[in-house]
Design a protein around this nucleic acid. Structure first.
Lengths: 222, 222
DNA sequence: GGCAAATTCAATTGAGTGGTTGAATAACTC
DNA sequence: GAGTTATTCAACCACTCAATTGAATTTGCC
């Protein structure tokens, strides 16, 4: 077997890691911040043993790193370029896999009724103090890092905490990324309740990757 | 099975396509330009039936497109973002797969003895008329598109045609991309023969992707 | 229509993968 | 050190995949 073939076989190992939906899901969660094995197993709906297997495989491929912290093993994305890869991967997938386009169109976008706000636009509007920014991810992920000035309101809390929002200000919601449904849902519900609302185009990982400021201050401070 | 899981399974299909060394090799060749099934089978060292299977699979995933031309079926990369994906994929692979780093270090780079020239630098030097640019890929790929002003000298022809090169000018060689060995080999041989030589950092696909000018003029014109 | 070339299809084989289960290991607590 | 919790290991089964082989299909040419 030629050198070229051996080399391509090595690269193919990376492809193998990305060739399983469960692993992609785990990577998506890890892109939000580091987590323990059973934390990941819970959010991804997998058995602990199964999640552990997938994580170990990704570790061998160098995409994630693990460290021990007491009884727990904490996994994290190995480097920013992995998030970048995931992003390109998703973009190409969305463009080229007919099935993805169909699924996304059918389930998520009510066409562009929920027209997104770009990162630049958000920065501008925040500066002017025109908007309320909400982070629709679970509390754990919010605490691991969020956009400065965002308040954490999960989907479950949304109805209950709507009263806290100023109806005069536009509400902008963001979540994990372009294929996370939280922000779509939040926007839909807030619209029903009469708010002017839009979703932020990038998710938190894309925001972070772009080098924009992030914050890890406690919930109370927002 | 949740929507999120289904969606990730769809994306995983893309990973599956990239999870095989032979397919990656075919994509690398296709990134040089379109080719027929048996042309691809020959350059990749596969049986025609096997190449056909791989190509059909990549077609189903939307990464390549096929068109009939007489008796032959011509395959081509579906869009530029596929080349971009391949590029990110290789970059991440090189950084994160320890085995790749080892193999590449051992076989290709005699460390940076063959320090590469960037695309910008080449454009600058070409403008000043300081360098001879050679394209070390097979004739077919050269004819499908090359950097303007480059002369096509394959590895096989190199020894024989060295006399055509001006020993006073620096010679810059390029080939298929960062994991193609042709330009390394050409540079090594030319150095032995006493030429000042370097290799171009990007390969032809990367050059094209960057939107830099390309030419398809006949060999005689160079 | 009959023949040849290029490609695809269909069936088969051996190897690898994903998920489950139950046992083994590691670290902390008492 | 016994007990508890978090993680990994090992064995297993059903399933998918890569490559080969030979037949079938499509197209062009006489």
């Amino acid at each position: 077997m030629s050198f070229k073939q051996q080399l391509n076989d090595q690269f193919a190992r990376l492809g193998k890691v990305l060739s399983n939906g469960r692993r992609l899901e785990l990577l998506e969660h890890l892109a939000q911040g580091e987590r323990s094995v059973d934390g990941l197993a819970r959010v991804a709906g997998l058995s602990v043993a199964n999640a552990s297997q997938h994580l170990r495989r990704m570790q061998q491929a160098g995409l994630v790193v693990a460290r021990r912290e007491g009884k727990q093993v904490i996994y994290a994305i190995a480097a920013d370029d992995v998030v970048e890869l995931l992003d390109v991967f998703r973009r190409v997938g969305e463009r080229h896999l007919a099935e993805v386009r169909q699924m996304v169109d059918a389930h998520l976008h009510e066409k562009d009724a929920l027209e997104p706000v770009s990162a630049e636009e958000l920065v501008e509007r925040c500066r002017k103090g025109l908007v309320t920014l909400i982070d629709v991810r679970p509390e754990e992920e919010y605490e691991a890092g969020h956009i400065p000035g965002a308040m954490n309101v999960t989907i479950e809390d949304l109805e209950r905490r709507m009263a806290e929002l100023d109806p005069e200000r536009e509400v902008i919601a963001y979540c994990r990324g372009p294929y996370c449904t939280f922000s779509f849902e939040a926007v839909a519900r807030l619209r029903e309740a009469g708010f002017r609302t839009r979703r932020l185009e990038p998710g938190f990982p894309e925001w972070k990757l772009a080098g924009l400021p992030i914050s890890t201050e406690e919930k109370a401070a927002s």
